[in-house]
Design a protein around this nucleic acid. Sequence first.
DNA 1: GTCTATAGATGGATAGAC
DNA 2: GTCTATCCATCTATAGAC
Lengths: 202, 202
Amino acid sequence: MKNDIQGKDVKLKILNAAKTLFAQKGYEGTTVRQICDEAGVALALVSYHFGGKENVFYALFETYAPSFLQKAYDLADPVADLQSLIREFARFRLAEPELINLLQQEVMMQSPRLEKVQHIVYALWLQLRAILEAGKRQGRFEYESLRHTVHFVVGTLIFTRNSPFLDPVLQSKEDLPVKEEQEDVIRYTISYILNGLKCNTP
Amino acid sequence: MKNDIQGKDVKLKILNAAKTLFAQKGYEGTTVRQICDEAGVALALVSYHFGGKENVFYALFETYAPSFLQKAYDLADPVADLQSLIREFARFRLAEPELINLLQQEVMMQSPRLEKVQHIVYALWLQLRAILEAGKRQGRFEYESLRHTVHFVVGTLIFTRNSPFLDPVLQSKEDLPVKEEQEDVIRYTISYILNGLKCNTP
DNA sequence: GTCTATAGATGGATAGAC
DNA sequence: GTCTATCCATCTATAGAC
């Protein structure tokens, strides 16, 4: 019993270290040694607990994104659905920015690991597509190309994060927000996207 | 003289191979052997011509993005400026999607290589920021947070590309555009972004 | 379950023939 | 300038002590 608890603890330490390092240096750019050093455990424990580096990657998503976007939308009110989807995605992004970062990398380079993880993101995009279609059909959204519009919205959703890269450029005039975050960011995002879709709604 | 020409040819073959592979598998995920195989040249030639893998990376940007976004905007007409910036960026993205992909990866993971390349993207974002500020001051754009709005626009611009990943999801109803592309995509992008900024303009 | 030590594979870079 | 063959560092994974 005590062993189990110790094991869980080590597994979690490895997962947390891997989450940070994968997001920061990419999957290939991260070594098992770095993960174990960061986690403060011995090199062998990645293989022992997960069966190899690649399984740490998969375990990351099973651990931190287990119930990601299971919500189903009935499309009766596409505007409300879209707002809900944006809110749900933004909350997850704010809670697990490293995971979004990592996912974005993998998506962008069409990594072979993506196959076992793509259902997470496919589900989201299919729902987004359905919402956009329904909204256009009902005259709530205006756009020309569904395909490109999905790209626009996904781009808006994914790229919005605490980017330590953009910040040196952007923080000269605006102070760092401390606690406004979360709900405000969500509000900004909803506003930008709905406007982008010419959605005539408060 | 003939040697020079041959050298140039090999250098270009290496650069083209590296551009594709880096974009597809990331910098760390790509090996010098893969690059040389893809280019059809011997392994040693990367070191001979470029002095190592890392310098191939830098040469990529010096070769394919030499005059990227040198245009300066006077901010007299922020709407026109923004349209111009979007158009310029979109054209580059359509011409060199791999480079944008690679740049996005590096930006996302804050890679150590970014330092020598970031001026390319800093320039763009500073100009974008200035345009957004000027546009708000002149009552042409509406948004709450400058910082987040820059993120939104950059996300829209960067993520929009021929994503081989999203396509299987998105192509069921819409046929693959063949020649409409280019100017139409630019039109869609401008429309989405200007609407996102509540810009009241045709 | 956790550690150290090491095996085995593969990475980037170079020596030297042509 | 280009090639083949090789060096050496580092990677992942595992064997075996505790």
